[in-house]
Amino acid sequence: MDAGRIIERLRDYRAQNERFDRLVRAVMANERAARAVRAAVAAAARGRGVATGGRYDTVFFIAGEMRSGTSWLRRTLSAHPEIACGHEGSFFGRDYEREEIPVYPAPVSSLTRALAGSEELRVWHSLPWNRWGDDYEADLRNLVRLSVDYFLSKEVARTGKRIVGDKSPQHTENLDEIHEYYPDARVIHIVRDGRDVAVSAMHHWWREASDRPGGIFRLTPEELEIRDAYLADREGFLKSGRSIFTEERLRQLARRWSHRVGKARRDGTALFGGRYLEIRYEDLLRDTPATLFRVLEFLGARRGEAVVERCIRAGSFERVSSRRQGEEDAGSFFRKGVAGDWKNVFTERDRRVYGEVAGERLAEMGYEAP
């Protein structure tokens, strides 16, 4: 008889014999017997397809506003022999129902939202006969931590690495929530000049607009006309003094960048303390080895010259785009890979508008403000 059948029979026996629990407690009180029982249960679980995952030494999360180099950093770190960083787990964002910029109309889900929003989970937890319905929030926090750990451990088991992380767009606004579940985690916040973020985001939305096959972003007719005019004659468009933004969109982008970057800095510093590291996209671009060395030191990973070079090569713009850095391809996710491009694109109106909305935050983050 296999272990699974034995466990099923034990369940039946327990239901029929009120002294079963006392017998189990007596057996488990003996250290050797307890180890044998746990080993048998684990073997049965493996036989029934329950994954146990792998153990990690350090967990970290990459935060950063969209188009700020988070994908570049993730790819670079994942090339390290000790670091595994998945794509976008979207684990956190319990109250993150929709983007504040309504270009993507569908709900933005997350693992914490899926668990916390489950009415069936709440009902099940409150069943009077299970005897654990007294602290739903505490149990929910533990369930989230165990669930995220399960997926992170799968990545550890798959890669054999000891440092595991995740980069997701929601992290920048949800470091306080991450701290609820992972107060022991490390956070890397990558910041980029908000005006470059705005330029890059607009190109990204043009490329993924809903009027194109597979596109998801809903842009206004005016924005679509601007896109088509720009792509048809970039030099002529810019020389004419036209802006790639409508004023409403630029204000949205400025508000979003200012709010998220500021909140991430405040929450990261206050909650994580020395486990929070802030780096700048521009520094990573200007002196990649030195900036990457800081990140690896922060994570407790090896920092030899050969390892650093391997990571840089894997994440290089040339490798991921098959173009030289600075060569623009408006149809690529990796469009240009430079800093300061906003100066070539922003009109006088754009500079004024962005400065009105986010000028103070630009100065706070160390950028030249209007």
Score class of each variant (00 low, 15 high):
Gly340Pro: 05
Arg48Phe: 11
Ser243Val: 05
Gly160Arg: 07
Tyr367Gln: 13
Glu88Cys: 04
Asn174Trp: 13
Lys336Ser: 10
Val261Cys: 11
Glu8Tyr: 06
Val144His: 04
Ala270Met: 07
Gly236Phe: 11
Ile7Gly: 08
Arg234Trp: 09
Pro105Trp: 03
Arg11Phe: 15
Gly262Arg: 11
Glu223Tyr: 01
Gly49Ile: 08
Asp283His: 11
Ser109Met: 12
Glu8Gln: 14
Ala43Gly: 14
Asp350Thr: 01
Arg98Thr: 00
Thr291Phe: 02
Ala314Glu: 15
Arg192Leu: 04
Ser316Lys: 11
Pro221Tyr: 03
Gly215Met: 06
Ile216Glu: 08
Arg351Leu: 14
Phe217Arg: 12
Gly117Gln: 10
Gly331Pro: 04
Ser322Leu: 14
Arg351Asp: 02
Leu231Ala: 05
Arg255Val: 10
Gly194Ile: 06
Leu250Cys: 06
Arg9Phe: 11
Cys311Asn: 05
Val59Met: 03
Arg324Leu: 13
Val144Glu: 07
Arg352Ser: 13
Arg352Met: 08
Arg234Tyr: 09
Leu296Ile: 04
Thr347Trp: 06
Leu296His: 01
Pro221His: 02
Ser210Arg: 13
Gly241Asp: 03
Trp257Leu: 09
Glu119Leu: 10
Met202Lys: 14
Ser316Pro: 10
Ala330Asp: 13
Lys154Arg: 15
Ala138Val: 01
Lys154Asp: 14
Ala114Ile: 14
Arg294Phe: 00
Tyr56Pro: 00
Leu143Val: 07
Arg260Thr: 10
Thr347Ser: 13
Val308Gly: 00
Phe61Met: 15
Val187Met: 13
Ala306Gln: 14
Gly273Thr: 08
Ser147Gly: 13
Phe334Leu: 05
Val156Gly: 08
Phe92His: 09
Asn344Arg: 14
Lys239Leu: 04
His171Val: 08
Ala264Met: 03
Val308Met: 12
Tyr150Gln: 10
Val307Asp: 14
Arg67Lys: 13
Leu362Ser: 12
Arg319Val: 09
Ser200Ile: 02
Arg75Asp: 13
Gly54Lys: 04
Asp21Lys: 11
Val338Gly: 06
Ile244Asp: 13
Trp132Gln: 07
Gly47Lys: 07
Leu362Gly: 07
Val144Ile: 15
Leu296Trp: 02
Val103Gln: 01
Ala301Thr: 04
Asp228Gly: 02
Arg361Asn: 11
Ser210Pro: 05
Gly315Tyr: 02
Arg256Phe: 10
Arg158Met: 02
Val338Leu: 07
Arg131Thr: 07
Arg310Lys: 15
Leu73Phe: 05
